[in-house]
Computed example of a mutant assay.
Amino acid sequence: MPIPPIVAALCLTEILSLAGAMFFPALQPIFEAEWMLSGTAAGWINGVYFAGYAAATPLLVGLTDRVDPRWIYLPSVLLAAVAMFLFATLAHGLWSAAALRLLAGVGLAGTYMPGLRALSDNVVGPRQSRYVTFYTASFSIGTAMSVYFAGVLMSAVGWRHAAWILGLGPLAAAAVFAVFVPRRTGEAASAPGTGRLDRRLVKAVVSNRDAMGYVLGYAVHCWELFGFRSWLVAFLVFCAGLQPGWSAPVSLQGVATAIMLLGVPASLLGNEGAMALGRRRAISVYMLVSGVVGATIGFTAGRSMALIIVLATVYGITVMLDSGALTAGLVASAEDKRRGATMALYSFCGFGMAFLAPLVFGIILDAAGHSVPGWGLAFASLGLTAMSGILWLRLVRGPA
């Protein structure tokens, strides 16, 4: 059965809107050298992008319960473009880069989940879970392409011109969304509510224990996923530096791109497995496997690059197995009239953890002197936290 045009359009807008999302992580070793950044400073710049997302999410995503998502999405995706243009012009060190990445994160808050809300408004029925997974998998495609083109454009025109070019992606996303995503009509357009996560609304969302299990699972998933992706290129550069005779047929940004792209089929297959085996059971297995890989990969930094790339690839796959399954589970378990608020809390918790993970990673590296054991401990902080999701999924659930 062909993919509905609305699903294809929203997946395309997701990919385009993320053109600049991984710009700093992809070029982090260059910025570290140019701006003399510590691991903690680099962690701040990486993490503050997700802090902007988490801070804006309660308002922007909560508003989708009463406002057509297009009126959230379009200004936000334009903000993402402006943030890239300003980064190209004004970024000169820790604080200017962090401020502009924070602004870009606000743009992400108004595009990712509002785009998902537009999808769930327009696609219902048994195939909704599969299409939600297509959308979440598009996030991996978008971030992978962001890493790849950041590396290619950096080599061709320098990082400032590269930022200008990548800022065009969100503008293209705005055009596609405006043309192909219909306006919300009928009862959904006038749903009651304040559009923000006030105490009463949060209490109502939290009382949905099935949804809250997925919220907590998503929080530790985002800790692991974005900690890994934020530091992946820097890790590969560190490992390659320990082996001066090693040369790669492609850039390390290209290696990271391939690893991230493999997360796309992993997310799709992970959701299919969850539908076949039972969602919570499957997600728990996925978290266990990825957590074990995360807890060990950093300690292999002094080994051969072939082994490191294989392990990073395995980690990139296993860390994404639960991504689509968690989001599809959340959408299915949320009450219709509070779906926007539930998604807002889901995003807030997930990307709040995504803010903290790169920062904690950098702090651990600084404390350990950027050594092999330091990388091992930093990655272990990702894997061990992810495995705690097994406990949350078991403890926080509705009555059988």
Rank of each mutant, 00 (worst) to 15 (best):
A118V: 11
L197G: 00
I283Q: 00
F87D: 03
F139Y: 13
A334F: 13
A26N: 09
P399L: 01
G324A: 14
W71H: 15
L116P: 04
A172Q: 14
G302D: 10
G107H: 07
E14T: 11
A312N: 13
V205T: 13
A357H: 01
D210Y: 04
V237E: 12
A104K: 03
F228K: 01
L116T: 08
Q128K: 04
I259N: 05
P249I: 14
I72Q: 06
L94Q: 03
T300C: 12
G125Q: 07
R338H: 07
F50A: 12
G383Q: 03
R199I: 07
V124I: 07
G213P: 01
V264P: 13
L16C: 14
V289S: 10
G254K: 01
G273P: 03
N46T: 11
T385E: 04
L365I: 08
W375E: 10
A248S: 15
P373C: 05
L171S: 00
V124C: 00
V7L: 03
F85P: 12
A276T: 12
R397K: 15
F238M: 02
R209N: 10
D366E: 13
A80P: 05
V396S: 03
V123L: 03
G263W: 14
L225N: 00
W246M: 09
L326P: 07
L288Y: 03
Y112W: 14
K337E: 14
